[in-house]
Design a protein around this nucleic acid. Structure first.
Length: 301
DNA sequence: GTCCAGGTGAGTG
DNA sequence: CACTCACATGGA
């Protein structure tokens, strides 16, 4: 168990900001959610330290693994204040969003996992994406375990060990039948998934070779994949290649752009738009959820 | 049952 | 270019 002090870092904001689909909470410890963070073939348990302040965390890994992998995975070397400073002081909406989403970071996730996850994401809600991605990972039948005893001791409802499924690599996915892919609830996207898996497994598409390409070139390459349009390409580039200037425009961001910016993002936001967008997406979805709860309560009266 | 979801490709004018 | 339409399925 590793004790950490991290500034500008909010696990819930990261988990609910729509950038990752396998960061879930198995339970509460000392009033704070424990998070199970599955990435590629790894899994980390991490929570706030109930005995510490808002910057104190407990992580279930060794210090060298934290330094060699998770520190970069959680993007802890990036100064997010620098990105927030792009926001105009009189942009009340954006400042409200940044207050809500304080502690959000853009994770350094695997590009292959992001490509498949965001192909799945089209016309699906975030909870529905989580379900399909999880089923896709479970197809292999491979199960791994992480030790959860430190959190089990704080809350007996949390099991002593927690299971997870690694994300399938391209060869594994390419080996499945269309029926198997379809059984995950991927629907009409199953063919897209198969085709992307074939391209990556044969080497026709070299994702790791694209890490140094210019933003425009990267998007162009991703757009060649069936089922990948500008939105999925932007998400893959932002979350899988850490292109912080790119802004995926989904239904939520289109609404925000129309309602608050007259249909056009301010030019001076452009270099930081991927980060600023993340605060806005989180806020817009959160507010929408609140409205739904209000509506439900009214209907029940 | 109804409505909507971190859209895309194909077809049309 | 812009616009429309079908697309499978889960979650609320």
């Amino acid at each position: 168990m590793l004790h950490l002090t991290i500034d500008d870092f909010d696990l819930t904001a990261i988990a609910e900001s729509g950038q990752c689909f396998r960061m879930t909470s198995p339970g509460i410890v000392g009033g704070f959610p424990l998070y199970k963070v599955v990435a590629s073939d790894k899994c980390l348990l991490i929570s706030r330290d109930p005995e510490g302040g808002e910057c104190d965390f407990l992580a279930g890994c060794a210090e060298d693994e934290w330094k060699s992998f998770y520190k970069h995975y959680f993007d802890l070397d990036t100064d997010y204040q620098k990105y927030r400073n792009y926001a105009s002081p009189d942009d009340d909406f954006l400042n409200e969003c940044m207050g809500y989403g304080m502690g959000i970071r853009i994770l350094n996730q695997d590009s292959w996992e992001m490509l498949i996850s965001f192909i799945i994401s089209q016309r699906k809600s975030v909870p529905a994406i989580r379900t399909t991605v999880e089923r896709l990972c479970a197809l292999s039948g491979k199960t791994s375990y992480v030790d959860a005893t430190p959190w089990h001791e704080m809350n007996p409802d949390i099991p002593e060990r927690i299971s997870y499924h690694p994300f399938p690599d391209a060869e594994t996915l390419a080996g499945y039948s269309i029926e198997e892919i379809n059984s995950t609830g991927a629907g009409y996207r199953s063919g897209y998934i198969m085709e992307a898996a074939r391209k990556v497994s044969t080497g026709e598409l070299d994702l790791t070779g694209m890490t140094k390409a210019q933003d425009e070139v990267l998007l162009e390459e991703l757009l060649k994949i069936q089922g990948v349009g500008i939105k999925v390409a932007s998400c893959t580039a932002l979350f899988g290649f850490h292109r912080l200037a790119l802004c995926p425009e989904d239904v939520w961001m289109k609404r925000v752009k129309e309602q608050f910016y007259g249909g056009e993002w301010p030019e001076e936001y452009r270099p930081a738009l991927g980060v600023l967008q993340q605060y806005m997406f989180y806020y817009a979805r959160l507010e929408h959820e609140k409205d739904k709860i209000k509506r439900t309560k009214r209907e029940n009266r």
